Computed example of a mutant assay.
Amino acid sequence: MLIIKLIGDFHRERTFDRFADLKAYIDRFWDDSLLLLKEAAEEEEERRQRNRESIESDQ
């Protein structure tokens, strides 16, 4: 009976470890995605600002 309990405890612990690993992966993916989105938005804003300045200097 003790062996069965130990196996069950080990399995629950491994399942928790896998869940924790998956959650960490999802968190990193989300953080990376937000960072890429922020960088793209900043680049787009810089491009628009350069275009505005170019149009103003042409007038």
Rank of each mutant, 00 (worst) to 15 (best):
F29A: 00
G8D: 14
D32A: 05
F19V: 12
E42Q: 11
L36D: 07
D58H: 07
W30Y: 13
Q59M: 15
I3D: 08
R12S: 06
R14A: 06
D32W: 01
A24M: 15
T15P: 05
E42I: 12
L35E: 11
R50P: 00
A20P: 13
T15A: 12
L36A: 09
D58W: 05
D27G: 12
E45I: 07
R48M: 07
Q49N: 04
K23V: 13
I26M: 09
L6A: 15
F19C: 15
Q59L: 15
D9L: 07
I7H: 09
R12F: 07
A40D: 12
S33M: 04
R14W: 09
S57N: 04
F10L: 11
I26G: 02
D27V: 02
D32I: 04
S57P: 01
I7C: 07
A20Q: 11
D17T: 15
D58R: 04
K38F: 08
R50H: 00
A40Q: 06
Q49G: 00
R47F: 07
K5H: 15
R14F: 11
R14Y: 13
A41R: 10
R18M: 15
D58P: 03
E39N: 05
R14T: 13
Y25W: 10
D58A: 11
D32L: 04
S33I: 08
M1Y: 00
F10I: 14
L37M: 06
L35S: 08
Q49D: 07
E44Q: 11
F10E: 14
Y25C: 08
S54C: 02
I26S: 05
E43P: 05
E56L: 01
A40G: 13
A24F: 14
L35R: 12
S54N: 12
I3F: 14
S33T: 14
E39D: 08
E46I: 01
E53A: 00
I3V: 07
E13V: 00
Q49C: 01
D9I: 06
E39T: 01
Q59W: 11
G8E: 09
D9A: 13
R18W: 14
L34A: 07
E45N: 05
D31F: 04
Q59C: 08
